[in-house]
Design a binder for these strands. Structure first.
Lengths: 252, 252
DNA sequence: AATTCGAGTTTCACATTGTGAAAAATATAA
DNA sequence: TTATATTTTTCACAATGTGAAACTCGAATT
């Protein structure tokens, strides 16, 4: 491991999480010498990864960070293939449709078809959400190999609202229910007022590596409406699984 | 400038441009020792910026690159405010609508509303295109301060198709025409078969910093249709300029 | 099954450089 | 004009990044 590179990447990640800070603020927040942070920023600026606002004396993410970050989505065809499916799902349900991928202990939201309704759910691409506190995350936990599931549970789970499932027993019950009906729900477990229906997407190896969800304000999700939306979500997830080559036995 | 950090960022940018290569291929392509490239990649992997496929022995961009890259779009509200405008423009014209921002000598495509037509233009977010060989780029050149425009022309302009404008005289004429009618066109200047109508978006300082365009196969762009599309594109660009606070005198 | 080969990973000696305190430069406020 | 705070550069030195070589591992060949 290259120590100075790792320190520099800490700087880059800090800037991305705290845009618009001055050199002094960044150095203080990072616990690094201003001179060191300065040289790091100037080097990254030379590559276009950060940008400096001369008037405000603030540092922010640069265009090249977007350029290289966008390449992550080009590794596979899943985002491209998901787009029409998400759009149809949004039109069929009238709510925002999302695509998320599992990464470590989180779901990474990578694509979205936004409803035109004035009040809407919004998970901008690039957002990470914990597996146990998101619809897609719980759909994936329900289809996770036992060993990985146990490893996930070996770390204490943070709560976000009064509804967050944080115990092994609660998650096991929820996973059983998810497998039984083919979809997971997030009922204000990460965000107050937010409801979400999600289903797993299987890849060519038969692993649940991504998920599709529909989300919106909890007040719009009555019992009958949930049943109807779930049918569309499960169908969309199955379509995407098929599109990316999942074995047919995983699509049921 | 930190030499080792700069070398490491060269590795990162190289991986993003050449995904799915092995360590040996990357080291050869970069002209760096495999041991050095290896330690760089492992350090970046630790931060989630690259990912290693153990089966294929290949390196690709990681989720954290997407996470931090996506933050570039959150610096300002332009992408959010553009979304409904791009969608309406796509619906009004039936072709793909794009938002691009100027960066150095290029346009960076940051957002897009794709037409549902089977044959379509596609500029995935994160794509860079030279200013002189794109509709948005030429719209921005037409409103660029003279000094920056001269600096731009001081570097030889590469051609991409037989139609690319590569001389000062050709670009000056094109800029005059663009200012006169309020929009630029890209008629197979970057990509064979591609047509594009673009208009500049002004920011709060009155600078032309972004642009909106509609693009599609040249065969679908007859003279009458171009006139109609141009009206929509100019209107959309003016709406976005207003939405992000451009002075009213710049919106005419 | 044993051997060979190529790529990935680790070790090691050493030249290079990253670091942070201090100084200098710059811009803003009083 | 002076003071202050921040940014930027300099400098001495400790830390480390580098690449060749060695080692490890897995796949292919015999």
């Amino acid at each position: 491991m290259i120590k100075s590179l790792d320190r520099a990447m800490e700087v880059l990640q800090y800037v991305s999480a705290h845009q618009g800070l001055t050199l002094s603020d960044l150095a203080a927040g990072l616990g690094q010498a201003p001179a060191t942070v300065y040289r790091t920023l100037v080097t990254l600026e030379g590559r276009g990864l950060v940008e400096f606002d001369r008037d405000l004396q603030t540092w922010s993410m640069g265009a090249q960070a977007f350029v290289i970050g966008a390449q992550f989505l080009r590794r596979t065809s899943i985002v491209e293939r998901a787009k029409p499916i998400l759009r149809r799902l949004m039109e069929a349900t009238g709510e925002t449709a999302n695509l998320g991928m599992v990464r470590e202990r989180s779901v990474l939201f990578v694509s979205q078809a936004e409803t035109h309704a004035p009040i809407r759910a919004f998970f901008p691409p690039g957002t990470l959400s914990p597996l146990h506190a998101s619809g897609i995350g719980k759909a994936l936990l329900a289809h996770m190999p036992q060993e990985r599931f146990d490893a996930f549970l070996s770390v204490p789970l943070p709560g976000f609202t009064a509804s967050t499932l944080t115990t092994r027993a609660a998650l096991l019950t929820d996973c059983d229910l998810t497998r039984e009906r083919g979809y997971a729900v997030d009922e204000e477990e990460k965000t107050e007022g937010m409801f979400c229906v999600a289903a797993p997407v299987f890849d060519a190896s038969g692993d649940a590596a991504a998920g599709i969800s529909v989300s919106g304000p909890v007040a719009r999700f009555g019992r009958d409406r949930i049943a109807n939306i779930a049918v569309h979500v499960v169908g969309a997830a199955q379509s995407l699984s098929a599109a990316i080559g999942a074995p047919s036995s995983y699509r049921a």
